[in-house]
Computed example of a mutant assay.
Amino acid sequence: MSDNIIREITTDELRKMDKQEGLVLQGCGGDLQEWLDGINSMLTEDGILLNGSHFESASVFQHDDLTNLLFSFEGVKLDMGKLAMWRLQTHGRFGGTWLSDYVPNRLGGFIEQPQVPQKPKMELLDQDGNIFAILGRASMLLKEAGMRNQIDEMFRRCEASGSYGKALGIIGEYVDMDLPEPSIEPQKSQKKKARSAYER
């Protein structure tokens, strides 16, 4: 029995896969598990799937009254030249096309995903203890990263936080801080002092 997985997706989900590539087979009637196992077997025999690689999963979706399968190329080793030839030779049988062609031609194109801005990186040095100096440095980095609208919000939240530690945590939500390793030396020295005091 195959451990390969078939998962159901919508065409809207397909339209959000602009960073991916895969093979779409159209009109896949019958047992979908047999399709997945059969394609793995066929592409292995034809020398398209390499080094024991295979499609561990496929995605099924409905469009134009057809059941279609998407085989994502992510994590799969393929001879792309041979696969392109195989796709052309079997097009009449499987209606094979690339995901990057299918979505623009059949679904109206990919949906642009809103880009999440990456937090600027800020090194927090051992001598940092002035929250306003840290806020100023964080504000400058946010401004350089084009994230000006977050500066006022960061300041307001820090002012309302009421403590250095909480304010530092809030700043860490806006910039990626390299926090210094906590030093354990002072504790050691205190223990030594306490021991020496008892020894006297």
Rank of each mutant, 00 (worst) to 15 (best):
S2R: 00
R7C: 12
R7G: 02
E13D: 12
Q20V: 00
Q26N: 08
Q26G: 03
G27P: 10
L32F: 07
G38S: 13
S41M: 08
M42F: 09
D46Y: 00
I48D: 07
L49K: 02
L49A: 01
S53A: 10
S53F: 04
H54K: 06
E56D: 14
S59V: 08
S59D: 11
Q62M: 15
H63G: 12
N68S: 14
L69V: 05
L70T: 08
L70Q: 01
F71E: 05
F73K: 03
G75S: 13
V76A: 03
V76M: 04
G81A: 07
A84K: 08
M85D: 07
Q89S: 11
T90W: 05
H91T: 09
G96K: 00
Y102R: 01
Y102A: 09
Y102P: 04
N105T: 07
N105V: 10
L107E: 08
G109M: 10
F110T: 12
F110A: 11
I111H: 02
I111G: 01
E112W: 01
P114V: 12
P120W: 06
M122E: 11
M122A: 14
M122V: 15
E123M: 09
L124V: 15
D126E: 14
G129H: 04
N130K: 00
A133V: 09
A133D: 13
A133P: 05
A138D: 02
L141S: 01
A145L: 04
G146N: 03
M147D: 10
Q150P: 03
I151H: 00
D152Q: 13
D152E: 14
D152T: 09
M154E: 03
F155V: 15
R157A: 13
R157W: 06
C158D: 14
A160G: 06
S161R: 06
S161E: 15
G162R: 03
Y164R: 13
K166F: 03
I171V: 15
Y174L: 03
D176T: 07
D178I: 04
E181R: 07
S183K: 09
S183P: 04
E185T: 12
K188W: 06
Q190C: 09
K191Q: 15
K191C: 15
K193T: 13
K193L: 15
A197E: 13
Y198S: 10
Y198M: 12
E199C: 07
E199R: 11
